[in-house]
Nucleic acid binder design. Structure first.
Lengths: 110, 110
DNA sequence: ACTTCTCCTATCGAATGACTATAGGAGCCA
DNA sequence: TGGCTCCTATAGTCATTCGATAGGAGAAGT
């Protein structure tokens, strides 16, 4: 019944991923952990949301990936942001600003 | 392909409707117009989004409705917020605050 | 009266995207 | 060897939103 935190992410996931990766390289679970970290625990991305998103974003050309070794010597796929991914981060940041401003205005009204 | 303004609402529609109705009575298109107004034109809710949402929210007990006459003497269904709807507005307002704070923090990080 | 316009409610089909649950490979350690 | 953890991955499901479309009914103009 409840909607848990369904829709909590709705549309912010891509931006969070792009932000989490930043200018570095991270593998899937690393991205997940970093998102939890930079949102102070508010967003906990589950594998079932994360991997489809990563594949989608690689398809879109915002991320590239390569196989490497994790900190624990395990096989892991690392992601890096592309130029297009940087631009996309900018676009989505602006969109987010528009939304929050509109909502702030709506929540102020009586 | 493109996402136009698909997902622009991202889960905020219920809250916007509750806010738009406020303590008064509004019919469907009136709610739609008021949302556009209080978000300064950012959110334009289409019938295909609005009516399913209204039905859903009435089902959930957050709104009640009755048939009446519009300002233009046309048959219209008016919606009013229930007590539960008021509580829900509070809950969703808090959730929204949590999300925006988390995002603000995430977008600040390098 | 008749046509046309606008207002208002309503539904359908498609697409998106997030969740739960599950699977499975592979290194680490006892 | 057996179990734990790390890591990637998919299947199935569900909720939400969109575009397109339908249609009734009062208003306005001729």
């Amino acid at each position: 019944m409840g909607k848990n935190q369904t829709n909590l992410l709705q549309g912010t996931l891509d931006l969070l991923i792009l932000r989490a990766v930043g200018d570095g390289e991270l593998h899937g679970l690393g991205i997940s952990r970093r998102i939890e970290q930079i949102t102070r625990g508010t967003f906990q991305v589950k594998p079932g949301s994360l991997f489809p998103a990563l594949h989608r974003m690689e398809e879109a050309g915002w991320l590239t990936s390569f196989w490497g070794e994790s900190e624990n010597n395990r096989r892991a796929k690392f992601y890096r942001r592309t130029k297009a991914g940087e631009r996309q981060a900018g676009v989505e940041t602006e969109q987010w600003a528009t939304i929050t401003q509109a909502m702030a205005h709506a929540l102020k009204a009586t």
